[in-house]
Each structure stands twice: as structure tokens, then as C-alpha cells.
């Protein structure tokens, strides 16, 4: 009677393929962090998270607060469009598009930051 082997050459190839595919899946998952994601927070509480790279048509987000603000979401960038705060500094901050950039409206306590790691930078001083 022919002895049956536990694994043959093809089994090893098959298992190898599965390993590579799963590894690739995780690698892909981890680089997912490189997307351009805008995070809108009011008083430190996240109220919106938008993948800016996937925005096709620009749209507006109204944020209710002591000083209501309108945020303009465009492909790869985001900005304060209208603000009812007294100083309007948030509007002057312009459109932000790079990871680690932040736009804020101090009176309304609304912040927008762009998430995503670039060159493994933990923070920017300046």
C-alpha cells in the first residue's frame, strides 16, 4: 500500500500563498492610515470624520454651537466657509489639506485636523 504523505509540494505552495495573501491584507490595512481623513471636533468631542480623498462633490457641514459655523468639504481639502464668531480667524486660516494641519474656531471651540501619518512624524513645532 502506498504511504500517503501528510503534505506534498503543492500543499506547501498552497499554504505559502494563503500566508502571503493574509500578510498582504494586513500590510494593506496598516497603510490604510495614510488616507487623508479630516476629523471635526467640537469641544474635544468628535462629531465628524471624513475621508477627503473620497470626496467627489464638495458639500457643506453645518455645525451648531454658540457660534454656528459652516465647513466646506472638498476633494482633499477642508475649510471654514462661514462663521458667526466675532473674530473670523477660522475663515482666515484657509483650506487645510496636509496631515498634521489644523484649522480652529476658538470662540466656537470647533477644530478640524487632518489625520494620517507622514514620514512617521509625531508632531510639528513652529
Amino acid at each position: 500500500m502506498e504511504k500517503r504523505k501528510l503534505v506534498n509540494k503543492y500543499d506547501i505552495i498552497f499554504i505559502g500563498c494563503i500566508t502571503i495573501i493574509t500578510a498582504l491584507f494586513f500590510a494593506f490595512n496598516n497603510t490604510f492610515g495614510n488616507k487623508k481623513v479630516a476629523v471635526i471636533e467640537k469641544d474635544g468631542v468628535e462629531i465628524n470624520r471624513i475621508d477627503l480623498s473620497k470626496v467627489e462633490n464638495s458639500y457643506l457641514i453645518n455645525i451648531d454651537s454658540k457660534y454656528p459655523a459652516v465647513i466646506l468639504v472638498e476633494k482633499n481639502k477642508i475649510s471654514f466657509l462661514e462663521a458667526s464668531c466675532p473674530d473670523k480667524i477660522c475663515k482666515k486660516m484657509g483650506k487645510i489639506s496636509q496631515p498634521n494641519q489644523t484649522a480652529i474656531c476658538l470662540p466656537a471651540k470647533i477644530t478640524i485636523r487632518i489625520d494620517g501619518k507622514t514620514n512617521e512624524i509625531d508632531g510639528i513645532t513652529g
Binding site: 484657509g94 496636509q98 498634521n100 494641519q101 512624524i121 509625531d122 508632531g123
Partner: peptide, 18 residues
Amino acid sequence: AFNIAIRDPLNTKNDAVS
């Protein structure tokens, strides 16, 4: 180590450039 970028002082428009 923590990697801290220092802002490019001549790039006045973009505060994320170092």
C-alpha cells in the same frame, strides 16, 4: 524616539511643511 518636525519658517502658507 518621538519624531518632531520643525516648521519651515519660509513656507508661510502651509504650517504642515517642515
